[in-house]
Design a protein around this nucleic acid. Structure first.
Lengths: 232, 232
DNA sequence: AAATATATTAACCAAAGATTAACATAAAAA
DNA sequence: TTTTTATGTTAATCTTTGGTTAATATATTT
């Protein structure tokens, strides 16, 4: 499985660094911010699987940050770290939408357990087939759950996860612009030179598959992204 | 909604009674047992939506009880109560399959919050019909209760428990994805490298059985799971 | 024409899966 | 009880698949 991304917002530099290291050793990708302000900036620039927020921070406390994060994203799990054990604080945290609450000092293994449990839970919540996974693309039929693409009178083509996700994302924007950045942040989970090259490779692969139907093609919009055109 | 049933196993009679009352006020139906032995007896006699187990109990501790409960029922959520904050204990609890962990003294409102969250979560999980035990798989007929697989004009093949459960799980998802993780957690009760290898071995065994009918095959969906394909 | 962005192919590496066999253990039979 | 037999796990090995990067070519914009 791909490494999960964690946003860690902690003003104590020592503690922050240690925790970051510990999480990284355990195969998480960690972005560390040293206050609420910075945390929010970093949150906006990337896609995280989990946020761990210290409650007591200068300028912007954990609750405020959590509320801002919730405005942008209702899904992402949030864990609070706090030195306080006061009931009101714990309840306040839950009300803001926390998924869990940890008192400092806490045991790192316990944190790890909780992180895994929470990420696991979230993953299973999304499962109910609310997400569309079947698409008609010209004469093609795409099943993105079973990851294959069929063309009349032919064996289904098996797609790799990336091929499949990319084609799905294009299909979701059929005849419209699918911004490069969108695919990169959602599928590659990182928007940089290399992932961008990698994406080009996948676009080429998809074009190969799709060229059987001359009414279907993937156009590039220079500097913007791609467009799956289906003539009808 | 109908009142949810909770099995509360707590050896301290005072604390037990207070907690029971509190939960009943909050519209739960509570069965109180005062030790592990009694807890297990009551568990077998009824159907509960949640079990709350004290860890420290005479005769039979909470972990042992949890393991027994899990043997009977893989679904029911379990929350541990403990006075200990020792790391090993918390970890032990999670390993036995706990859904959550609460330290005593804890805040009852927090407990309530957790109970609701857990019951809610379980409710939203979809479960395939596990009671069915006869399946038509192409020309094969599977009886998963008597554990045999028949093919026209042939002696029935006897299946081992694991072979049988795995084939059944595949059959329940016929032509659809059966996630690897699902089989591992349900059949092997553990999702790790070794159980995963073990599962591969069983897939190979099943393929051997099934290859007599060329319209039946088990396909792998890389990184996702398997798919029992039956062409018709 | 220089810089930037995209296209395509191929080489490479890592992860996942398949298969066979060895080993361990528990249930059944002698 | 000891011996078989059935079942399941672990190991070893091989194959396939998936994804990134590099190399090179072609477009597009400034």
């Amino acid at each position: 499985m791909e490494a999960k991304k964690i946003l860690l917002v902690e003003d104590d530099p020592n503690f922050g660094a240690v925790l970051k290291d510990y999480l990284m050793i355990n195969d998480f990708e960690v972005t560390l911010a040293k206050n609420g302000m910075e945390g929010f900036e970093k949150f906006k620039k990337d896609t995280f699987d989990l946020c761990i927020l210290d409650v007591m921070m200068p300028y912007k406390d954990g609750y405020t940050l959590a509320r801002e994060i919730r405005e942008k994203n209702q899904e992402v799990p949030i864990i609070f770290l706090t030195a306080k054990t006061l009931k009101e604080d714990v309840l306040k945290g839950y009300k803001v939408g926390a998924d869990d609450y940890l008192n400092k000092p806490f045991d790192s293994e316990v944190l790890l357990m909780k992180i895994k449990a929470i990420i696991q839970r979230k993953a299973s919540e999304v499962k109910p087939d609310t997400t569309k996974f079947e698409f008609e693309i010209g004469k093609f039929h795409l099943n993105s759950k079973l990851r294959f693409l069929t063309y009349p009178g032919q064996e289904p083509i098996k797609l790799s996860p990336k091929e499949c996700e990319l084609l799905k994302m294009l299909a979701l924007h059929e005849n419209d612009l699918m911004p490069r950045e969108l695919a990169l942040t959602k599928i590659w989970r990182d928007d940089n030179y290399f992932t961008s090259r990698s994406m080009d490779v996948y676009i080429a692969k998809l074009r190969k598959f799709l060229k059987q139907d001359e009414n279907v093609e993937i156009l590039n919009i220079h500097g913007e992204g791609f467009r799956l055109v289906v003539k009808k």
